[in-house]
Simulated assay, not measured.
Amino acid sequence: MQKIVVTGATGQLGSELKVLSENYAQYEWIFADRTQVSLDNLDVLKYQLEVLSPNIILNCGAYTAVDKAETEQELANIINDLAVGIIAQYVKDHCVKLIHISTDYVFDGTAATALTETAATNPINVYGVTKLAGEKACLQENPNSIIIRTSWVYSSFGANFVKTMSKLMQERATLSVVNDQIGSPTYAADLAQAIMVILTHEQWQAGIYHFSNEGEISWYEFALAIKEIGGFDCEIIGIPASNYPTPAKRPQFSLLDKGKIKKVYGVEVPDYLSSLRKCMELLLITN
């Protein structure tokens, strides 16, 4: 039986993979927390991988505090870049499969059409810089890796835009949301399913792939959809990003083109509204 190690097991994607793992009993699953796979401790990371001895690694762990990364550059680089290099080196030495999760933040946001995997990268914040460095380390150490870039991830697990907005819309009469940053959200459950489609496919085709849900929207439009589905009364006001300064710059346009993952692996990409409804139904049940 092949053994899958999932890093970042308590994060949104790791949690969704844990739910999905019940449908894939042909694998032995290890959902590794920070004590089992220490992405921030390079001295022990290689030893930990040897002990776990996986056949497949799904590297969902990352330093994702985008604003905090501006002042914690070293830590962000260790987790998002150097640790990835060590993992990629391990999988190459042991003939192990690796799927590594990356981000739309490797782009600068100046495009006007959906971004393909070959579009020029030019990150505008520390988080994006470290994630791009991690991609390069991954492919340099092990060209047989698969990298999936995703965007605007949310889930019924963890902290995210959907859960935050749902809470605030029940507490406040008005909310201001940025209306000039364009992309598409990703329901982590859909990304988890896409990963399993790739893993169980008859062919392994290495390289970079893009995955998010279908739809081209702003954060403001995303908030409006959350309001409608949740039946909230809160007024949503669209504002430019310049009115909401953050320590880290965000790309203004980071819509991902999903054509490659559809063509190569036959991955079905749900519309963002249908996936948002599914997630919010779960949130209503759990709350």
Rank of each mutant, 00 (worst) to 15 (best):
N144E: 14
V126T: 15
F157L: 03
T150F: 03
P123T: 12
E135G: 13
V126K: 10
M169R: 01
G158D: 06
T150C: 05
Y154H: 09
I146G: 10
M165E: 01
I147G: 04
Q140W: 06
E135F: 10
N144H: 11
G134M: 08
V129W: 01
V129N: 02
A120R: 13
T116D: 15
T116F: 07
T150I: 02
P123H: 10
G158E: 05
S155Q: 09
T130Y: 03
T164K: 13
A159S: 13
S151E: 01
S145G: 08
N160T: 05
N142W: 02
T150H: 02
I147L: 13
C138S: 15
G134D: 08
A133T: 05
S145N: 09
I148A: 10
M165Y: 11
T116M: 10
V153N: 13
V126N: 08
E117G: 09
M169L: 06
A119T: 08
S145R: 04
V162I: 14
I146E: 06
P123I: 14
L132F: 05
E141G: 01
G128Q: 04
V129F: 03
F161I: 09
N122C: 09
N144M: 08
N122V: 00
K167N: 15
E141Y: 12
L139Y: 06
S166R: 10
S166H: 03
N144D: 14
L168D: 07
S155K: 06
Q140V: 10
V153Y: 00
F157Y: 15
F161Q: 04
I148C: 11
T164N: 08
S155N: 08
V153Q: 12
I146L: 08
Y127P: 05
A119N: 06
T121F: 01
S166Q: 10
N144P: 00
L168S: 08
K167R: 15
A137P: 00
M165S: 09
R149C: 09
F157K: 10
E117R: 09
F161K: 04
A133S: 15
I147R: 02
V162P: 00
K167Q: 15
T121V: 12
F161C: 07
I146R: 06
P123C: 12
E117L: 12
S156C: 11
